[in-house]
């Protein structure tokens, strides 16, 4: 258990090292989640639009 505590202490620099890693984790995961969510929302919007115009439905099959 002692070694785990030592590890988290980061030689006395815990308050610099962990926020750096935390911030990078937060921003990258946030970037991924918002990008995925935008894609899903737009995919649904496009599908709904194509429902309205049956004449063009076949054209975007490969979406």
């Amino acid at each position: 258990m002692d070694s785990i505590a030592t590890f988290f202490e980061m030689g006395g620099y815990a308050r610099f090292v962990w926020p750096a890693y935390g911030l990078v984790g937060l921003v990258t995961v946030g970037l991924l989640v918002t990008s995925l969510r935008t894609l899903r929302v737009r995919e649904r919007a496009l599908a709904a639009l194509q429902e309205e115009m049956p004449g063009r439905r076949g054209r975007s099959r490969d979406l």
Partner: peptide, 16 residues
Amino acid sequence: LRVRAEIIASKIRAIR
């Protein structure tokens, strides 16, 4: 992911 989302946005704009 973002380029795909942009392509879809353009398609939506084109259809509108």
